[in-house]
Nucleic acid binder design. Structure first.
Lengths: 134, 134
DNA sequence: CAGTATCCCAACGGATACTG
DNA sequence: CAGTATCCGTTGGGATACTG
């Protein structure tokens, strides 16, 4: 157990990790969280457990490859549970874990922000594209 | 101007767009916002205008290609301004627009979430990887 | 229904070199 | 310093076909 300097201890209270640093493992986590499908799957699951097919229906246009891949990663990262019910055919339900519920507001915020500010972004793009390219 | 049914009018108050729909333009915006570099650039700019080289320093490990590309997209979408000061050598400052400031808390939330929950994710991964692969 | 496995193209993104 | 251009390997992600 290493001793800590006063300067280190001051910072250590709040942040053990810093995504601004290149070697920080949060970089990798950040790149996983900043994923279009994650931003849709997490909000889709907040109403309660959903089946694979239900999710595919709610998240229109998602390929089953990406849906499965996204769910697997979320499961591994402890954000989603996968429950198999033995029946014919088999039934699989996905649900948010407590950790997943903690992430939910953040993911919803991105999705909502996009929906709420789409028009403003459109206007900005029109303005940008209109200016003579110097 | 089309008339609206009661059911439509009720929904229309809050959402004109829905990222769950495949054709919705917010899908494209969402995929831009869910970007690792955006999640780092926006928080980095909140302290005030920053130069290209300053940003590159704060966001350790970012290539200048990705930094420039990210800044260009953010500028086009109206989230960031680019100010050129004619001097030798030329000085370029980037700053958040009001719209960018609105996005800031959302981006900070993701970055902070990753930093705050890194350990829990690590534990979840260890548990997941430890279980016999059925 | 849920999932795996291929194939394959397009986009991401780093490295490097060059311009104003 | 800021930025563009090129090269090129890696990854993302859709389409399709097949298994339990």
């Amino acid at each position: 157990m290493p001793t800590t300097t006063a300067a280190q201890g001051r910072e250590q209270d709040k942040r053990e990790y810093d995504a601004f640093l290149a070697g920080c493992p949060t970089r990798e986590l950040l790149s996983r969280l900043t994923d279009k499908w994650v931003a849709l799957v997490i909000p889709a699951l907040v109403d309660g457990p959903q089946r694979h097919s239900e999710l595919a229906h709610r998240i229109a246009g998602v390929s089953q490859k990406m849906l499965t891949q996204t769910l697997r990663t979320l499961e591994r990262d402890g954000l989603v549970t996968r429950t198999v019910t033995a029946s014919v055919p088999v039934r699989v339900d996905y649900a948010l874990t407590p950790l997943g519920h903690e992430l939910f507001p953040v993911m919803l915020a991105i999705k909502s922000w996009a929906e709420a500010h789409m028009d403003q972004v459109f206007e900005a793009r029109a303005r940008f594209d209109a200016q003579p390219q110097a």
